[in-house]
Simulated assay, not measured.
Amino acid sequence: MSNPSNTPTAVSCLEQGGVILYPTEAVFGLGCDPDNQQAVEQLLVIKQRPVEKGLILIADNYGQLLKYVDDAKLPMDKRADIFSSWPAPITWVMPAAKSTPKWLTGQFDTIAVRVSNHPTVKRLCQEFGKPLVSTSANLTGQETVTSIAQAQLQFAEQVGFYVDEPLGGNTQPSTIKDAMTGKVFRG
């Protein structure tokens, strides 16, 4: 069962530039405000992830992602595949809008985005009013944490708020596909 009382505190943390830990479809994720460079840099330090790799944005609906995606570059024949696959644990790598900051895209001119059906993610994005940065809750190259207690041991005060709600029940992280070619980066 979700606990809506968690959300205002998690959203407050996001609004203040903090990093939160929250459940996704398969794993716990670290997230922050994608428009706050300092928050994204803090998340990258916590995770020990280089900015060049880029990050995923997770949203309640595609409309929340339009600011970051160059929607006009999506071919009509690819749109059916993309939009019929959501909401689900499928991340699409799309052309990034020119205004999308490099702290999100890294070395790429694309942005990885997902519309989630996880109730906690949906609620957080609705109440925050935009997508969240979403990256697995682990140090780069290490196993993802599997519980709030394990996360608190690993990240301690580096994470501003821990959303203690259930994972979505999937056993694998999201599939990542190229929106232009259909190529699978992670299956």
Rank of each mutant, 00 (worst) to 15 (best):
E25R: 06
Q16S: 11
Q38V: 10
V145L: 09
I148Y: 13
K177H: 02
D164E: 10
T120W: 04
D77C: 05
K183H: 04
G160I: 12
L44M: 09
S147Y: 06
Q42E: 08
T100W: 12
S85Q: 05
P173W: 13
F108A: 06
C32Y: 08
L30D: 03
V93N: 11
G182T: 09
G141H: 13
T110F: 06
D71T: 13
A156N: 13
Q154V: 10
E127L: 03
T175A: 12
E15A: 12
E41Q: 14
Q158C: 07
V51E: 14
W103G: 14
Q42A: 15
P173V: 05
T100A: 07
Y22P: 00
P95W: 14
Q152W: 12
V93E: 07
W86E: 01
V115G: 03
Q64Y: 05
V93M: 08
T140S: 15
T110M: 08
N138A: 04
K177R: 12
I20D: 02
C125W: 02
D164P: 03
T9S: 04
F185H: 14
N170E: 12
T9H: 14
V113I: 13
P75G: 04
P119V: 00
R114V: 01
Q48W: 11
E25S: 02
K98C: 01
R123C: 00
Q154H: 12
I58G: 00
N36W: 09
H118F: 05
G106V: 06
K53L: 01
G129N: 13
K73Q: 14
E41V: 04
R123A: 00
F161P: 01
E143D: 04
F185I: 14
D33H: 15
W103L: 05
F28A: 03
V145H: 10
Q150K: 15
R114M: 02
A149W: 04
Q42G: 07
P4K: 12
L104A: 13
T110S: 09
H118V: 02
F155L: 01
N61Y: 07
K78E: 08
F128I: 01
T171M: 11
L104S: 07
Q172W: 04
I111D: 03
L65P: 04
I90M: 08
N3M: 05
V27C: 08
I111N: 10
L21N: 07
S2M: 10
Y162Q: 02
D109T: 15
D71W: 12
T105N: 08
L124N: 00
S174A: 05
F83R: 11
L44D: 10
L139P: 03
A156I: 15
P87W: 06
D70M: 04
M94L: 14
L43D: 08
I148Q: 11
P87Y: 11
M180Q: 10
M94F: 09
D33W: 11
V113C: 14
Q158L: 15
T181R: 07
S85V: 08
V184N: 09
D33I: 03
I56S: 06
D70Y: 14
K98D: 05
G31D: 01
M180R: 14
F128R: 11
S174K: 10
D109G: 12
